[in-house]
Computed example of a mutant assay.
Amino acid sequence: MTAGPVAEPVPEPIPAPAHARRRLRGLWLAAGALALAGAAALSLAFGARAVAWADVAAGLSGRVDTLDAAAVAVRVPRTVLAALAGAALGLSGAVMQGVTRNPLADPGILGVNAGAALAVVIGVAWFGIESVEAYLWTAILGAAAAACFVYAVGSLGRGAATPLRLALAGAATSIAASSLVVAVVLPRNDIAGGVRAWQVGGVGGASWEGILPALPFLLAGFALSLISARSLDQLALGEELAAGLGVRVARARAVAALGAVLLCGAATAVCGPIGFVGLAAPHLCRLLVGVEHRWLLPVSALAGAILLLLADVAGRLAARPAELDVGLVTAFVGAPLFIWIVRRRKVRAL
């Protein structure tokens, strides 16, 4: 007798839990995009003067024949800047937490924002920089110098840089940089007012002239950060195991860190140092989509944009007809979050 035809093996179906997780993450990503559109709409409609939705549509279409429509047209660059800066800070925070394997990593806590601010203040006070391009390059160089300094200090002594060492080194660097800013500005009454207002961190007075020069730096930072997602997942396994998988550890860290520095420096140059967005957004998103960076990074960018937009709206409504700078609002919200993270009994590994 001849054997019957052998049936071809049927590929195993994708396990339901993994498929369900991917579907849930996709839903969170879509929900984040919708929430970002809603936050942008609120930013256009509410402020010192509430605007009807019909006037919002008129202002977006370019018709400024009414006072409310003209107000909307003025708010458009402010809304765009808040979304870009929030996305940059949220994404850079997630990348920094992945590079350092430190759940407390944040551009503000690690002293990167303070380094960028100090560089800009020195540039203004000693070298008379005025153009947006000069602000951008100076802030990025200052952010890079601060990041390198913090990592070097955290690596001193026995063993590699630990999360606690990096947090302490970043806090000390941030305090020192802030003190140096005061020392530089104190004898310069001609620039003191403008520097202090910028140092609080805000998106008021945004214009396309200030946003457009920052776009190349932001786009480069977004690209470098997002393409580092896979290497960040491998680095989370440990340096030795990542190297065994073929990852060039130093190169992977340098590429990811460069992306984070570009994002922090550009956002700080245009908006001033804004804290806690890079800490709050990744932690919230890690609860929603998990620790896989190909999902965590884009969702953190969306969450950062939403957070900064809502903080800007809250600052405008809380002190109407005046307004609170967004840096004050994020500090008010982020400080309790930082204390909660520090006081947790066990911080999950990244």
Rank of each mutant, 00 (worst) to 15 (best):
V80C: 03
G59N: 04
R248I: 12
C148D: 09
G193I: 09
V329R: 04
S207T: 14
L27I: 12
L310A: 03
A69Y: 10
A152Y: 10
A254R: 07
L309Q: 02
L44F: 02
G244Y: 10
L258C: 15
G62E: 09
R286E: 01
G194A: 10
I211E: 02
V112R: 00
V247H: 05
L44R: 01
Q234F: 10
M96E: 04
L337K: 11
A105V: 01
R251T: 11
A45H: 05
A16D: 11
T330V: 13
V56H: 02
G204N: 14
A117N: 04
S228M: 07
A114E: 01
G32K: 06
L296N: 00
L110W: 00
S61L: 08
A256E: 05
Q234L: 09
L27T: 10
V342I: 07
A220H: 11
G62L: 09
A281F: 00
F222I: 09
Q199C: 06
I109F: 01
V10T: 12
F127Q: 08
V326A: 09
S228W: 03
N189E: 15
E133Q: 13
W28D: 04
R101T: 08
L235Y: 11
V182A: 08
A172D: 04
S174Q: 07
L328V: 13
V64S: 10
F338K: 09
A169R: 06
R165K: 15
F276I: 00
Q199D: 13
G327R: 05
G62C: 11
V255S: 08
A177L: 10
G38K: 03
S61A: 12
A331V: 08
L307F: 11
A229T: 03
I140A: 03
A35W: 09
L262W: 01
L60Y: 13
A183C: 15
G327Y: 09
G157V: 08
A18G: 05
I175S: 15
G327K: 05
A114H: 04
E239I: 07
A197M: 13
R196Y: 13
A269V: 02
N189W: 11
A254K: 03
L104G: 02
F46A: 15
A220S: 08
L279Q: 02
L328D: 01
S61I: 04
F127R: 10
L287R: 15
I122V: 15
A58G: 10
C148W: 11
A266L: 08
V333H: 02
A147L: 11
F217T: 09
A252K: 05
A236G: 03
E130N: 14
G93L: 04
R21A: 12
R188M: 05
A16K: 07
A52W: 12
V326G: 12
R78N: 05
R248Q: 12
A52Q: 14
W198P: 06
V313E: 03
G47C: 06
I274A: 03
L84D: 01
A20D: 06
L337D: 13
S178M: 06
G59I: 04
A114I: 09
A220Y: 06
A119V: 07
L141P: 06
H19K: 14
A52S: 12
E8H: 14
G111K: 05
S179N: 12
R316P: 06
I175T: 14
